[in-house]
Structures are given as structure tokens and as C-alpha cells.
């Protein structure tokens, strides 16, 4: 007999070992998220996927599903908090969408559109962050990094290269690459690596592909991230 959890009143089946996020995704339910990607080990850093389980907030991407869980997901209070987190991500970096090749295909934007973000609300930090164009095929623009560590996980767990990591801490946290010079061009990263493909924002971009699809005809210009991530046409 299958086990179930309740999400926003709906009975959702799960298998042992699945997280709440896994169960929700399998059932076609959308829980906003940025650092989570079902292809990789759950991370739990962006906290957008926070849901309320039996009165307590938990990250749904890392919390194992268990019988008896009453999960609140798509409720006004949580969506307001998710919006605040999204706004925090916008102001801590330099997210200048009109100047970004990823615009329209960017998950950070997609989530912000979904949550109805009209402004970043908080005061901007405008941090000084480095852009690294040393690699012939891949651009690393740290202005857009949200520390989801998808590139870290992909490079370590899929590519077996360990090209990326984080250093420093707190608001000074920054993405580093595996080279004495500190330059992406001196690492073993290839444009075909998984790590070069997984960035949810425009921090890591394969060069010369930026405008293959024109602005206005891109994924989130036409579809909500909810439809994209729960529907048939996954990225």
C-alpha cells in the first residue's frame, strides 16, 4: 500500500526515500525553488522551497516525506516570504536583467515573475564582483551568482572535475574555480560539461549562444516557471 502526505489539502503519494519536493514534483505540484534540481543531490540553501509541515517550516527539497505530514505550500504567507527571499537575492548581487544574455531563460527571473515581484524592495548592495572571461567557451559573471552550488555539485558529482567551490563566508561568500591563477580558463571545464549547463541564472554562460532565441520569445516570456517545471516541456 502506498504512503501519502497531504499538500494543501491534496493527497500526494510518496515512496520511501523521497523528499517532500520529490513527491510534489511527481504529483505535478509546484513548490518554488532555485537551488534544487532533481538531477542533483538536494542542497537546501535558497530556502524558497520552504513549506510548513505540521506547523514547522522546513526546506521541502531536503525534508524526507513521511506519513502524517500535513504540508502547506501555496499559501499567501509562504509566498510573501519566498518573495522576500527572491528580493534578497536580487539586491545582494548585480542582477541587471536588460544587460543579461540569460534574461527570459533565467530561473531567478522566472520565480520572481511567478511571485509577482514588482521591485527588489530592499536597498541594493551593488557589490564589486569579478567577471571572468578567460575561458574560450564559457563566461563566468559572478555578479549573477546566487550560491546555489549547482555548478559545484555538477562538476563534482557528474563531471568528476571539481572545477567550482565557494570561499569566504556570510555576505562575502564567493564562487571560486579550481586553478592557482583563479581563472576559469586555467581549469579543465569544457562547454559540454554538465557544470556549464546547470546555472539557474546567467552567472555561467556558454559563449556565442546568448541570443539564439530573441528576447521576448524566451521560456519565461511565454510560460510561468510553474508550468515549465511541472508540465511536459522541462528545460
Amino acid at each position: 500500500m502506498s504512503k501519502n502526505i497531504i499538500i494543501d489539502g491534496l493527497t500526494v503519494p510518496f515512496q520511501e526515500g523521497q523528499t517532500i519536493m520529490d513527491a510534489a514534483m511527481a504529483a505535478g505540484l509546484y513548490i518554488p525553488h532555485l537551488c534544487h534540481n532533481p538531477e542533483f543531490k538536494p542542497h537546501g540553501s535558497c530556502k524558497l522551497c520552504t513549506v510548513n509541515v505540521n506547523g514547522r517550516n522546513v526546506a521541502s527539497c531536503t525534508m524526507p516525506a513521511a506519513e502524517g505530514q500535513q504540508v502547506l505550500n501555496d499559501i499567501a504567507e509562504l509566498n510573501a516570504e519566498r518573495l522576500a527571499l527572491t528580493q534578497m537575492l536580487f539586491v545582494e548581487g548585480n542582477h541587471l536583467c536588460p544587460a543579461c544574455e540569460k534574461s527570459g531563460n533565467c530561473n531567478l527571473q522566472g520565480v520572481a515573475y511567478y511571485l509577482g515581484m514588482m521591485s527588489p524592495h530592499y536597498n541594493h548592495f551593488y557589490p564589486a564582483r569579478e567577471v571572468d572571461a578567460s575561458h574560450p567557451d564559457i563566461l563566468l559573471d559572478r555578479n549573477r551568482c546566487i550560491y546555489c552550488e549547482l555548478c559545484v555539485r555538477a562538476s563534482r558529482d557528474v563531471d568528476g572535475k571539481n572545477v567550482f567551490g565557494l570561499t569566504d563566508r556570510g555576505i562575502m561568500t564567493r564562487l571560486i574555480v579550481n586553478a592557482t591563477s583563479g581563472l576559469l580558463g586555467d581549469t579543465s571545464l569544457a562547454a559540454t560539461d554538465k557544470a556549464a549547463q546547470v546555472c539557474p541564472t546567467g552567472a555561467l554562460l556558454v559563449k556565442r549562444k546568448g541570443f539564439a532565441v530573441p528576447i521576448g520569445s524566451r521560456i519565461f516570456d511565454r510560460h510561468t516557471i510553474k508550468d515549465v517545471q511541472t508540465g511536459g516541456s522541462h528545460e
Partner: peptide, 15 residues
Amino acid sequence: GACAITGGLPAMRNN
């Protein structure tokens, strides 16, 4: 517009 809301392209000079 983007500039009134985030600083926009002129804010590229901020660093």
C-alpha cells in the same frame, strides 16, 4: 522601468 527600479544599465558603472 528597470532603471528607476534597480538602477538599470547606468548602474553598471557602480563598481
